[in-house]
C-alpha cells in the first residue's frame, strides 16, 4: 500500500476510529440513560460532531491546552480524559473526574491539557489565550485552543480574544464548531455574516472553513493551523461545519428543525460512516478490525456505566472541601 494514501498510518487510523466511536457510544448511552431518568441535571451531547474533536486532538499533546464548551464530552474523550471518570462525574459520584462537584458541564483534567468544559458560552476563549500566553512565556511548544460554537462565537469574549491573540501573537487556535444552531436559534438568524473564518480576518487572524463531518478534512486542516501556531505563525481560526445529532440538551423536542433533518444527517452526514467507508474502500483497514473496535468500545462504555452506578456518592464532608487550596 502506498504510504501517502492517508495522512496517518494504520495504527493512527484505528486510534482515530476508536476515539470517534467512543465519543459516539458514550453519547448514545447517555441519551438512553438520561431518558430513563438515571442522570441528574442536564447533558449536552456531542454525537455527530466526533470527527472535529478527534481530527483536531490527534495533533495535540498533554502540554497543549484546550478550553471546551458545555458540549464538552467529545473534547474530553479526544483529549484523553478517562471515560470511567467522566461517566462517574456525570452520575455525580465521588469517583468522578471532579469528585462529583462539576458534572457534565465542568469536566476537566488539567494533566491532560483539558482546562474544562464550560457552562458559560464563550468564556473559554480568554482562558485558552492565557494557556497560549503561558506556553509562550515559559518557552515550551504547547499551544492554546478554544472551542466555541456558532452561538458563542457571537460573544464579546470570543471577539476580544481574537484581538488579544493577534496583538500578542499567541500560539493559539480558535476552533468554531458550527452546527447551525445556537441552542435552538439558527446561525442564519443570529449571525450577521455567518462565516467565522471571514470574521477572524477582521482581526488579522486567518480563518478557514472545513467540512467537520469529514475526519480527513479536519485532520489535515487542523494539522496545518496547529503547526502554524507551534512554529510562531500566530493564531488562526478553524471553522468546522458540522451536524448535531441530538437536541441542544437532552429533553429538547427539537421542533425548530426541518422535517426529516435528523434522519437525513444520520444517513448522509455521519462522520463515522464516512470514515469507515473511506478507509475500508481504500483497503487500508478491514471492516472486521473496525467491528472489533466497536465491540471493545461498547464493552468499555458498559463498564464505565456499571462502575459509575456502583460508585459511592460524595458525602456531607465533601460539600465544603476543594473551595480553596488553603483558606
Amino acid at each position: 500500500m502506498n504510504d501517502n494514501v492517508f495522512p496517518l498510518g494504520k495504527e493512527d487510523l484505528l486510534k482515530a476510529y476508536r476515539t470517534m466511536k467512543t465519543i459516539r457510544e458514550f453519547e448514545e448511552r447517555l441519551h438512553v440513560d438520561f431518558g430513563r431518568g438515571e442522570i441528574p441535571g442536564f447533558v449536552h451531547l456531542y454525537a455527530g460532531e466526533e470527527a472535529a474533536a478527534t481530527g483536531i486532538m490527534m495533533h495535540l499533546n498533554d502540554q497543549d491546552r484546550i478550553a471546551s464548551t458545555h458540549r464538552g464530552h467529545g473534547h474530553c474523550i479526544a483529549k484523553g480524559v478517562d471515560i470511567g471518570e467522566m461517566m462517574a462525574e456525570i452520575y455525580g459520584k465521588i469517583t468522578g473526574a471532579c469528585r462529583g462537584k462539576g458534572g457534565s458541564m465542568h469536566i476537566a483534567d488539567l494533566s491532560k491539557g483539558m482546562m474544562g468544559a464550560n457552562g458559560i458560552l464563550g468564556a473559554g476563549s480568554p482562558l485558552a489565550c492565557g494557556a497560549a500566553l503561558a506556553a509562550k512565556t515559559l518557552g515550551h511548544k504547547g499551544i492554546g485552543m478554544s472551542f466555541t460554537g456558532d452561538g458563542a462565537s457571537n460573544q464579546g469574549t470570543f471577539l476580544e480574544s481574537l484581538n488579544l491573540a493577534a496583538i500578542w501573537n499567541l500560539p493559539m487556535v480558535f476552533v468554531v464548531e458550527n452546527n447551525g444552531y445556537a441552542e435552538s436559534t439558527s446561525v442564519d438568524y443570529a449571525t450577521a455574516v455567518d462565516s467565522y473564518a471571514d470574521r477572524a480576518a477582521g482581526f488579522g487572524v486567518p480563518g478557514v472553513i472545513v467540512d467537520g463531518t469529514d475526519f480527513f478534512a479536519v485532520y489535515e486542516a487542523a494539522g496545518e493551523v496547529i503547526r502554524r501556531a507551534r512554529e510562531g505563525g500566530g493564531p488562526s481560526l478553524l471553522e468546522c461545519k458540522m451536524v448535531r445529532f441530538f437536541g441542544h440538551f437532552e429533553g429538547d423536542a427539537q421542533t425548530y428543525r426541518g422535517e426529516g433533518e435528523n434522519e437525513y444527517n444520520r444517513e448522509n452526514n455521519d462522520c463515522l460512516k464516512l470514515f469507515r467507508a473511506r478507509v475500508t474502500e481504500a483497503g487500508v483497514v478491514d471492516g472486521g478490525e473496525l467491528d472489533a473496535i466497536d465491540s471493545e468500545v461498547l464493552a468499555a462504555i458498559d463498564k464505565a456505566v456499571e462502575e459509575a452506578v456502583a460508585a459511592p456518592l460524595p458525602g456531607a464532608a465533601d460539600l465544603t472541601t476543594d473551595v480553596y487550596v488553603k483558606y
Binding site: 480568554p126 482562558l127 489565550c129 476580544e160
Partner: peptide, 18 residues
C-alpha cells in the same frame, strides 16, 4: 481595553504555570 479577554487570559495562564 478588553477586560474579559485579558483578565480571562491571566486566569487561564495561572492554571498553566504562570
Amino acid at each position: 481595553l478588553s477586560e474579559s479577554a485579558y483578565i480571562g487570559a491571566a486566569i487561564g495562564a495561572s492554571t498553566c504555570g504562570l
